[in-house]
């Protein structure tokens, strides 16, 4: 295998692995649910993206034809990550999950919850 392809694939692999790890580290260590939500939605998405780019380059080089179907998974994750984040955040708001004390703007959270319940009554 040519040296520079190996370098590119290895760089993407390490980068992706580090970002996936940072996402899970954030999930484990951050103080409350809402802050924890940030790490997996962002860091893990980028990590997966770069792992899939590495796979695409590798398969393209090995099989000799342009392999783009990894792009499908990347696109799918990019589209679905914000949707799942929104759903989980909505669930947590509705369940009145504990918000850490130094959070500012708690009235906004209360408002958001109220809008939701008023929507429930009208529905």
């Amino acid at each position: 295998m040519e040296f520079w392809i190996e370098v590119v694939v290895s760089a993407f692999l390490i980068f992706g692995g580090v970002f996936v790890f940072i996402g899970s580290l954030g999930l484990a260590k951050l103080p409350d649910f809402y802050t924890r939500l940030h790490a997996p939605t962002k860091a893990t998405t980028l990590g997966m993206g770069s792992l899939l780019v590495a796979s695409s380059v590798m398969i393209t080089y090995q099989q000799g034809y342009l392999s783009l179907h990894e792009l499908l998974i990347t696109l799918f994750l990019l589209i679905t990550a914000p949707v799942t984040a929104h759903m989980i955040a909505k669930t947590a708001l509705h369940h009145k999950l504990h918000i850490i004390d130094r959070t500012t703007g708690k009235t906004s959270a209360k408002n958001a919850r109220k809008r939701e319940s008023s929507e429930e009554h009208s529905a």
């Binding site: 992706g16 692995g17 996936v20 996402g23 899970s24 999930l27 649910f33 924890r36 939500l37 997996p40 893990t44 990590g47 997966m48 792992l51 899939l52 796979s55 990894e70 998974i73 994750l77 799942t84 989980i88 669930t91 947590a92 369940h95 999950l97 504990h98």
Partner: peptide, 21 residues
């Protein structure tokens, strides 16, 4: 909380995709 568990499961799904890739 239960949302924490759902979030953990969702992240596990994505990480297992990474492992398969």
């Amino acid at each position: 909380g239960r949302p924490d568990r759902i979030l953990a499961l969702d992240t596990m799904y994505i990480n297992s995709i990474a492992l398969i890739i």
